[in-house]
Design a binder for these strands. Structure first.
Length: 346
DNA sequence: AATTCGGGGTA
DNA sequence: TACCCAGAATT
């Protein structure tokens, strides 16, 4: 097929020199693919370097504590990736003798590995003819073939997967997969793609119908909900504070935070003080309450906008054990908390 | 089939 | 602002 020939030729000339392209060791490829889910290369690169430096083998990762893995993941987001990464490393190390599955079907059974990642590892490490479909592939194929099926519909995901599987170079699935993603990432970009120097100009339907900016089609997601977060930053006379591990479902699972008071509306000292006076951590003791950030911090996530205030709570002795402020940097925290800790500098 | 998982970058 | 990113898991 001419498409794959043109594409892999473009790739041979234009590909970036990335560290995970120097190996086909499944551990490193797996690590890179998990890190790069919904994450741009530029953002994921330093995390990849940090992980292979600290955990050179799957056994090193399996022997780590989950909190240490989350700490290294801190700031990258989508923390279920880190939890699943750790769980899968234990499974591979302990049940599979350190050997990753060598095919799409069995890779797909591992936690945190879906259709895309199973295809990526199977093709790159084991030359299996399994086409990847990521955001880049949706964009390239929807434009080249002029397909307006919404990419985030079940019909769309099946349609594009089938198309990619028909196009893949059966003699070099690894390079084809990486080529189409690289092409989408650095040339067939979302905005202002480099159509003027594109080797597909003559045959690209969207270019010739002038519909590049309309493709791919995506169903819009719901708007983010507003939440009001009030973090209580305890400071005791013996230089302790309180961090709590987030349990259950929802964002930041298993990361740490200052005790959180979520409220319906924005709070000030007058409204918050009586409210928290009944809190388990403050009942029957005297405390001083000071608002740290004058302006509300608006932390924007995909589905939530967190209107956040940090409240300094000065007390004598904590009602529970707490942690030494000196050791606060050991705990994995959401970047919202991490930024506060840096700026506040205790 | 929809929603929920982060955080950083771009125009 | 709105949209995007080498998506997966849950509801």
């Amino acid at each position: 097929m001419i498409f794959s020939k043109t594409l892999t030729h473009w790739y041979s000339i234009n590909k970036r020199n990335l560290p995970w392209r120097q190996t086909n060791n499944p551990y490193y490829i797996w690590l890179s693919e998990i890190i790069l889910q919904q994450t741009q290369v530029k953002q994921g690169l330093p995390y990849y370097e940090a992980f292979i430096a600290k955990y050179p083998t799957v056994f090193d990762l399996a022997n780590a504590n989950e909190s240490d893995v989350l700490k290294l993941w801190q700031g990258l987001g989508y923390y279920s990736r880190a939890r699943n990464l750790h769980a899968t490393s234990k499974h591979v190390a302990n049940e599979l003798k350190g050997e990753f599955p060598n095919n799409y079907k069995n890779l797909l059974k591992l936690k945190g590995i879906g259709d895309y990642t199973a295809s990526a590892i199977a093709s790159i490490c084991f030359n299996e003819v399994a086409a990847v479909v990521d955001g880049n592939v949706y964009r390239v194929l929807s434009r080249y073939f002029g397909i307006d099926t919404p990419i985030n519909s079940s019909k769309g995901s099946k349609e594009f997967k089938q198309l990619a599987q028909e196009l893949i170079d059966v003699n070099n699935p690894a390079d084809f997969n990486q080529a189409i993603m690289e092409f989408g990432a650095i040339q067939c970009k979302p905005k202002n793609p480099d159509c003027n120097i594109c080797p597909f100009q003559d045959s690209c339907i969207a270019f010739n119908k002038n519909t590049i900016s309309d493709l791919p089609v995506k169903i819009k997601s719901a708007k983010a909900k507003k939440k009001h977060f009030n973090f209580l930053v305890f400071i005791s006379v013996d230089q302790k504070t309180i961090l709590q591990k987030r349990q259950g479902k929802g964002i930041w699972q298993n990361l740490y935070q200052f005790p959180l008071i979520e409220t319906e509306n924005e709070m000030d000292v007058k409204t918050l003080k009586p409210l928290i006076s009944e809190h388990d951590l403050l009942k029957d003791i005297s405390f001083e309450l000071v608002q740290y950030n004058k302006d509300t911090i608006i932390h924007k996530l995909s589905h939530q906008h967190l209107y956040t205030k940090f409240w300094i709570v000065n007390v004598g002795i904590l009602k529970e054990a707490g942690i030494l402020i000196d050791e606060i940097h050991d705990y994995p925290v959401p970047i919202l908390i991490g930024n506060f800790i840096e700026r506040f500098n205790f």
